[in-house]
Amino acid sequence: MAKNSVIRLNNVWKIYQMGEVQVEALKGLSFEVASGEFVAIEGPSGSGKSTAMNMVGALDYPTKGIVYLDGHDITKLSESQLATIRGRKIGFVFQQFNLLSNLSAMENVALPMMFQGISQIKRKERSKKLLESVSLGERLSHKPSELSGGQQQRVAIARALANDPEVVLADEPTGNIDSKTGRDIINLLRELNKKGKTIIMITHDHNLAKVADRIELLKDGIIIKQKRSKK
């Protein structure tokens, strides 16, 4: 497994200083995700889920331990190097969609490509194709405020795919949309997984987590249980 692992956490600690008190959000988290897997990190609120997502997504440095992203030890990378690798290797899908409100759907999808220095013509071409692949070909120039929650999340998924990353990291992707639309979004993620994308989903919802190949159950900053799906 180690050979083709995309993300590996090795005894990762994250300790926050909250005034006088030290909060240990992660206490020696270790797990790895292989290329092509669909993994759910499940945990109740306060379990260190968000912190785990920050580590997995290379958004932050651990206090202790090592995070490998595509073979790079991220603790040895500068913020800018990390940003570049993150932009290339990971696509983020957030609970609040986090689209830029003054950009059109197409411009939102094109944004990650701009940060990788891809030409405008290629950006336009690819973002159009991506939006068509999530059935939003008719909504290219709509602003986020003109789209429904489900549509916005599909734009976000298209954006996550912009730089053709190895991993799509989805943080409660259905948290802000109704359950039927939520199922569509999950199906979209599964489809992507079938096409070879590695999916990491963070959720508190066990029913949602069940769609993954593997569930890492997180509690008090540490993996307490690992379950393989019965599929």
Binding site: S80, T84, N98, L111
Partner: peptide, 16 residues
């Protein structure tokens, strides 16, 4: 601020 966070998450460098 949030927008800046999003841009950084999707690959914007500090210099960008």
């Amino acid at each position: 601020t949030r927008e800046i966070g999003v841009m950084k998450a999707i690959g914007a460098k500090n210099s960008d």
